[in-house]
């Protein structure tokens, strides 16, 4: 589904991501871990088509990254609020569905609005949403067209405990439906749902490693993260 080969990204002389490679099969989830500023979000921005890689290539569902096919096959939750302040929640979901060329999306949108507890604010401009509500709306936009690849950047940031559970369930559900997922998070308890874990260290990626194996060797993901980050 997602094949990444030697992606690098730099701003001038400032290297953000260096020679990153991995692949994610359909129905699998990869968690990218690492400290602030290590390149997790930049990697997802490149894979979403929002910015270009300085070097390297990637394919989505066999299509070259950045093409119309690749973009429509990708659902993306950015690490920013990522919403239009003057559009209502409902208009956001319709826009996302239209840009994905999705046909049967209305029932899906209604379900997501209910699951993500957005029903009371769906007709309000998104500029009035709290940070957590904006994150939920971003998640709904990524999921509304059931894309085969999901790139999810810090989905739990600012979300309440109930929201964390809901989003976790939605990610697991998308995986069960055959989507490939790449997730970044600092919430290591939530990252255990991933099938594989990769850790950024000095802008380079270590892994991916099977999550089960890491848990067996280190007991917790936190211990594994510390080990891999300082190895």
């Amino acid at each position: 589904m997602l094949e990444v080969r030697g992606i690098s990204r730099s701003y001038g002389e400032h290297v953000i991501v260096q020679d990153v490679s991995f692949h994610v099969e359909p129905g699998r989830m990869l968690a990218l871990l690492g400290p602030n500023g290590c390149g997790k979000s930049t990697t997802l921005k490149v894979l979403s088509g929002a910015i270009q890689a300085s070097a390297g290539t990637y394919t989505v569902d066999g299509h070259e990254g950045g093409t119309d096919h690749a973009r429509r096959a990708t659902g993306y939750v950015p690490d920013t609020r990522g919403v239009f302040p003057r559009l209502t929640g409902g208009e956001h979901l319709e826009l996302a569905a239209r840009l994905h060329h999705a046909d049967d999306w209305r029932q899906r949108a209604d379900d997501l609005i209910e699951q993500l507890a957005l029903d009371e604010v769906v007709d309000l401009p998104a500029g009035a949403y709290s940070h957590g509500q904006s994150r939920r709306l971003s998640m709904a936009m990524a999921l509304v067209a059931r894309p085969p690849l999901l790139l999810v950047d810090e989905p739990f940031d600012g979300v309440d405990l109930e929201g964390v559970d809901t989003i976790t369930d939605l990610l697991i559900e998308a995986r069960a439906e055959g989507a490939a997922l790449v997730l970044t998070t600092h919430l290591l308890d939530a990252a255990v749902i991933a099938d594989e874990v990769a850790v950024f260290r000095h802008h380079e990626l270590s892994g991916p490693h099977p999550t089960g194996q890491l848990l067996q060797e280190h007991g917790t993901l936190q211990a594994a993260w510390k080990h891999l980050a300082h190895a």
């Binding site: 921005k45 088509g49 429509r72 993306y76 950015p78 609020r81 990522g82 840009l99 994905h100 971003s138």
Partner: peptide, 15 residues
Amino acid sequence: AYDGGASVWLLGKAS
């Protein structure tokens, strides 16, 4: 100021 940071999302979807 009109897109409220949604450009990053939109860039991945529209040309």
